[in-house]
Design a protein around this nucleic acid. Structure first.
Lengths: 248, 248
DNA sequence: CGACTGATTGATACGTCTCAAGGATAGTGG
DNA sequence: CCACTATCCTTGAGACGTATCAATCAGTCG
């Protein structure tokens, strides 16, 4: 990891080459309208924030680490995961630009955060967040909303892991990704994560993910122009799959 | 469901036959020490609370309903679940006496709540909770903590559903239950929910759950005195299973 | 007691995992 | 620019675990 800027000054002019805080918030893909207000409050934290970079596959923090910072994604993709003692892992979620993470955790992080691609983050010290939330009551409110959002995401994912077949899981995943990317039907969708990551997210093996995608391809439901892109040709069919209605 | 008491009065003497609010909090099984403080704050809500009963398998509220109330379990067990269109369901969690639920949700409930056994609840109007949390900053803080706790529970469950075999899942479930029931090693543990519920929670079928339990029984790891009870004879072995270390 | 519900056990089918080989892609250095 | 390499993806064959279907058993209630 590399820290690029420890802006003690409130100078907004530094580093114009990358999008500023507010802009990211506006194009955020991972939250409802409530998130926007959170970003506004967090902007107060700007003076204590630092811009940090992580290379692909670098660990941002590990489960159990002291939760000293919360992060916001400027660019790139982050995975939140849990590792078991015997080397298995479960990816709880993928986070896209605009998403905030590590803000839930108090004391220790409850999961590990790793860079799926090269990422640029803004980090906020926990102490400052707590100070701000103590004075401005709205802040806690907004953090709360973010947490609720994450909660909903996980509940949906529980259903995926508990009830769905491999093909249904992949369908659900594509739809979730399309939704978060604000992609329109027929758009070319980015797949920033590898097949193994998708597998670890869906509780499958990499081979099973490949086969599921291949089958969707054969059925004309999706088109795969390149390894890291996908086009949802028939999102209605995907939705039928994801909702568990087997159509014959 | 039946409403028994709409105590507009602050009269603490009514209905002494059942444990009072504070006692339940003290013996709560579903939260850390932070929960205790939450109960104290919620006690302020007592005057707006109502005691309600639900019979076994009755629905307390459904996913998508207007989230007008939060509930606290006085006695009995509640399951939180999601139903899919084609009739499958995923039980996200079981809640024991002392647990609070429906407090996360704003607007609409994100899951259904159903009575596993006959239950007695105390209900709190959402409007009063919001009013209280607006004036007493500590309340939101404590709700936040409860939410964080629930979040951790779900994260662990994600690993169970995503990574573990049937036997490992059942082991994890028994350990979780023992932990929440404050059971000591060797204690007789209550299994208030049926096998089908356990299956729906673990993403398995009822037959697979039976077979997993039977195997644990054969290995002497657990003893099953009756259908609704279980004794963890070798919780170390269970822990090895649950943590995914296959021992040979 | 008989009927009912839920639990258990067995036999078989199916889906996913595992192992193995081959193919695509990106990055590296000549 | 082209091998060369490493990494990831894809596909196939067979093994394994869980689901499914069916029958029996146990506990409960009228």
């Amino acid at each position: 990891m590399s820290i690029e800027m420890q802006s003690i000054r409130t100078d907004q002019a530094t580093d114009r080459s990358l999008p500023r805080f507010g802009y990211i918030g506006a194009e955020s893909a991972c939250g409802g309208s409530g998130q926007a207000a959170l970003y506004e409050d967090l902007r107060t934290l700007d003076r204590f924030s630092a811009r940090v970079r992580f290379a692909k596959n670098e660990t941002i923090f590990s489960e159990g680490d002291h939760a000293g910072h919360a992060y916001k994604i400027v660019s790139g993709v982050v995975r939140l995961c849990k590792h078991t003692q015997d080397g298995r892992r479960q990816i709880a979620d993928f986070l896209l630009p605009g998403a905030i993470f590590g803000i839930i955790d108090r004391g220790e992080y409850g999961f590990s955060a790793e860079a799926v691609s090269d990422v640029v983050l803004v980090s906020y010290p926990r102490t400052q967040i707590d100070r701000l939330s103590a004075t401005k009551s709205g802040v806690l409110d907004h953090i709360f909303e973010a947490l609720t959002e994450q909660f909903m995401v996980m509940q949906r994912h529980l259903v995926v892991l508990g009830c769905q077949s491999a093909k249904e899981r992949v369908a659900s995943f594509f739809l979730l990704l399309a939704d978060r990317s604000r992609a329109l039907p027929g758009d070319r969708l980015d797949l920033p994560m590898g097949r193994q990551d998708i597998a670890s997210h869906l509780g499958l093996t990499i081979e099973t993910v490949c086969r599921a995608i291949a089958e969707l391809k054969r059925e004309g439901i999706v088109v795969v122009p390149s390894m890291n892109q996908i086009i949802l040709k028939d999102s209605a069919a995907l939705r039928r799959l994801a909702e568990g209605q087997h159509y014959c």
